[in-house]
Amino acid sequence: MNAEQPIALAPTESHDELKARHKKEQKDLQAKVTGLKKTATKGDKKKKKEVLAEVAQLESSLKKQQDQEEKDWIQANGDPNASSQADQNVTTLEDEEEDDFDPNDIPIDHLSMEPEPAKSKQPQQQQPSGGKKPNRQKARKNRKAQALKELQDEAEKEAAGQVNMNEVERKAIEELAQVMGVKVQDVTADGHCLYNAIADQLSQHYQKKTSVKDLRHDTADYMRENSDDFLPFLTNKQGDMMSAEDFTEYCNDLESTAVWGGQPELLALSRVHKVPIWVVQMGSPTVKLSADVYPAKTPLMVSYHRHMYGLGEHYNSLRPATAQ
């Protein structure tokens, strides 16, 4: 396989599963947006602008990611005749309940709104009996929408001038990889990126052909059998130490869903395959898992990205930088 081509692994999810995952990611984003909005105190225009800027970046990142995944899936599997825009259900600030983030709280005279036209001096005509009254609720809603749009436009302009952390991180990791004699091989961000990266590494260095399903199964089994090595370092959704029941659910999800993996799963993978795993990341020393346990073995190398996508971490494979 040409090292410059994307990793050609067998598809790990159907189109319905892809759409279901996209919907879940959109719900996660909606929850995150709601949390961000609550950090903006009433009347704090500067904070609201910062929130809008961050939301714009998150929505743009998710849209780009999901559009690319939809395109990749169709290219690999054909048009299912049921595809839809990946961002169709992405909730924007305008779609949220107005009470959570009310632009009417912002003094109107602080916004660049057009002045209202001067009132006519002519006497108003009396409405016929039974005629419709002015819709004050609709007019108020329109004023809110206009105020929010101006605020969001201003926030987007500021966001355009902010540092692109994705690009900064990408460049930093590529420079580290070059020094180590490897190069970044992109892996699809489908929830299985860690396992796809490890599968690519096993193929590159040990000629082992494996699947995401097998890697997830082996990882979950190892963690179940060695729970004492993992349970003290894991927390549940409330931030508390996991109970035995929490841990069982965690391992079951790890094995049967597209839930993301991290350092605990990498440690388990290194023990299952009896090889060290190195994790290269920006701003931190390379993490070398099981390097002391298997010092003579060629390490599997992956890169860890915090800023590549808006909703969470991502892993890529680091292939040897051999001459073409």
Rank of each mutant, 00 (worst) to 15 (best):
K23C: 11
K23T: 13
K23I: 10
K24E: 08
K24P: 01
K24G: 06
K24A: 08
E25Y: 08
Q26G: 07
K27W: 08
K27Y: 07
L29C: 02
L29A: 01
Q30K: 10
A31G: 09
K32A: 05
K32V: 04
V33R: 01
T34D: 03
T34I: 11
L36R: 04
L36A: 06
K37A: 11
K37P: 03
K42L: 12
K42Y: 12
K42R: 15
K42F: 11
K42V: 12
D44S: 10
D44L: 08
D44M: 12
K45N: 14
K45A: 15
K47T: 14
K49H: 09
V51H: 00
L52D: 00
E54Y: 03
V55E: 00
V55K: 00
V55G: 00
Q57E: 00
E59L: 06
E59F: 02
K64H: 12
Q65N: 06
Q66N: 08
Q66H: 05
Q66M: 11
D67Y: 03
D67I: 03
D67C: 03
Q68H: 12
Q68R: 13
K71N: 05
K71R: 10
K71V: 04
K71G: 04
K71S: 06
D72H: 01
W73H: 01
W73C: 00
I74W: 03
Q75T: 10
N77K: 07
N77A: 05
N77Q: 09
G78D: 04
D79Q: 05
D79V: 04
D79M: 06
P80W: 05
P80N: 07
N81W: 08
A82K: 13
A82D: 12
A82Y: 09
A82L: 12
A82F: 07
S83E: 04
S84F: 09
S84R: 14
S84T: 15
A86E: 01
D87C: 02
Q88K: 15
N89L: 07
N89Q: 10
N89K: 08
N89E: 09
V90Q: 07
V90L: 11
V90P: 00
V90K: 03
V90H: 05
V90N: 04
T92W: 06
T92A: 08
T92N: 11
T92G: 13
L93T: 06
E94I: 13
E94N: 14
D95F: 14
E96D: 14
E96I: 14
E96L: 15
E96S: 10
E96Q: 15
E97L: 11
D100G: 14
D100Q: 15
F101D: 01
D102G: 01
P103H: 08
N104W: 10
D105T: 06
D105W: 02
D105H: 03
I106Y: 00
